[in-house]
């Protein structure tokens, strides 16, 4: 099981700024290990963020995204005290969902 995400969400002037740190190896599938064998690809393929049951961000990712990715985005209409939920799914089908309260 992957480590939890670190999610920070701050509402200001009707706009919520969300910062997400994900713990993931993000292996490209192009790298070789010490023995010269290819390290199998293992990376996040899709990311979505939900607020009040509504998707506010949906992204398709690939192996070009760095290890331990950082994602920052803004969306309108969120209020202080409400919850934001972020989910990622990787190419092995593993997934993780974490929530945070908007400050």
């Amino acid at each position: 099981m992957a480590d939890p995400m670190r999610i920070r969400a701050v509402a200001r002037d009707g706009v919520v700024n969300v910062k997400v740190l994900m713990s993931h190896e993000m292996e490209t599938g192009q790298r070789k290990d010490g023995a010269g064998q290819l390290v199998p690809a293992h990376f996040i393929q899709s990311v979505s963020a939900t607020h009040n049951g509504k998707v506010v961000l949906s992204a398709q990712w690939g192996p070009a995204v760095s290890k331990n990715p950082f994602l920052e985005f803004n969306f309108k209409a969120g209020q202080k005290g409400e919850r934001i939920s972020v989910t990622w799914v990787d190419n092995k089908g593993e997934q993780r969902t974490d929530e945070a309260t908007i400050n």
Binding site: R6, L21, S23, F70
Partner: peptide
């Protein structure tokens, strides 16, 4: 500077 993954180590 923004989003330093060190945060993940801090949490752990």
């Amino acid at each position: 500077q923004d989003g330093n993954p060190a945060d993940l180590w801090e949490a752990r």
